[in-house]
Structures are given as C-alpha cells and as structure tokens.
Amino acid sequence: MDGFGIIATLIIGAIAGWLAGLIVSGGGFGLLGNIVLGILGAFVAGWILPKLGLYIGGGVIGAIINAAIGAAIILVVISLIKRA
C-alpha cells in the first residue's frame, strides 16, 4: 500500500468510527480509537454484509458506509459485553 492508500484508509476509518459513535449513543473512543474502530468495522462489514446479501456501492462513500455499519456492530457488541 502506498502513502496515499494508508492516508485514505486512516481518513475513512476515522470518519466511519466517528459516524458509528454518533449512531450508537455513548460510543466513540477519541480520534485514534475511532480510526481503529473504523478500520476494524470495515473488516467486520466486509465479512458480515455479503453473508446477509447486502451490497453497498463502491467508492469512498460506499467504503465509509460499510465501515460505519461494521463499527456500529462492534460498538453494540462492546456495549452488550460491558453490561454482562
């Protein structure tokens, strides 16, 4: 991955993590936490959404939406684990 790819991944991850923090109340972990959450969310969404038959368009907007959905799933799972 070149320098631009790494920067794009970090920006998309940060935006997705921030959006997931807004969607799931009480979520969000600061800038670095949101970047990590967004990147992990992209992996989760890339694994779960196709199994459910959901395909969101490509490009940067599609990547942000997919990563935000995955990050929101992660935040919900984390909140369920904290309650247990």
Rank of each mutant, 00 (worst) to 15 (best):
G28S: 04
L10F: 11
W47N: 12
L52N: 01
L49F: 05
A84D: 02
I56L: 10
S25F: 10
R83G: 09
V77K: 04
V77G: 11
I48K: 11
A8Y: 05
N66Q: 06
A67S: 15
G33K: 03
G70S: 01
G62Q: 01
I23L: 11
L75W: 03
F4V: 07
A63F: 01
A68D: 08
G28R: 06
A20V: 00
G3F: 08
L22C: 06
Y55H: 12
Y55C: 03
K51T: 05
M1W: 12
V36R: 11
A20W: 02
I81P: 06
L37F: 06
S25C: 06
G41T: 03
W18S: 15
A67M: 07
I35Q: 06
A20L: 04
L22K: 12
G59I: 07
L37A: 13
G33Q: 08
V44R: 00
V76N: 00
V36G: 15
N34R: 01
G70Y: 00
L32M: 14
G30Y: 08
A72N: 06
I6L: 14
A72E: 09
A68N: 08
I74N: 09
D2N: 12
S79M: 10
I69T: 03
G26L: 01
G30D: 11
I56H: 05
L75F: 01
L37Y: 08
A71I: 03
P50R: 02
I78E: 14
L54K: 08
G57E: 09
I11E: 10
L22R: 09
Y55E: 14
G57N: 10
F29T: 11
I73K: 06
I73L: 13
G46D: 06
I78P: 05
L31I: 15
G58H: 12
L19S: 03
I23Y: 08
A20H: 06
G62H: 01
G38Q: 00
A16F: 08
P50A: 00
I81A: 08
I7P: 02
W18G: 13
A71F: 02
I7V: 14
I81G: 07
T9K: 03
L37H: 12
A45C: 03
P50K: 01
D2A: 01
A72M: 01
I7S: 13
F4S: 11
G41W: 00
I11V: 15
A16R: 06
A68C: 10
L22G: 15
I74Y: 06
A68G: 09
I15L: 12
I39V: 15
V44H: 00
V44S: 02
A71R: 05
V44W: 00
A8T: 08
F29L: 13
A84P: 04
Y55T: 15
G21A: 03
V36K: 11
G21M: 03
L31R: 14
G26P: 09
G26V: 02
F43P: 03
I6M: 10
G21K: 04
L10C: 13
A14N: 09
A72I: 05
G33W: 04
S25R: 14
A72D: 08
L40K: 02
L32N: 11
I35P: 06
R83K: 15
A14V: 09
F4G: 05
I15E: 07
G62M: 05
K82E: 14
G33I: 05
I74C: 11
G53T: 10
I64P: 07
L10W: 10
L31M: 15
L37W: 04
G30I: 05
I65R: 00
A72P: 14
R83H: 13
L32Y: 12
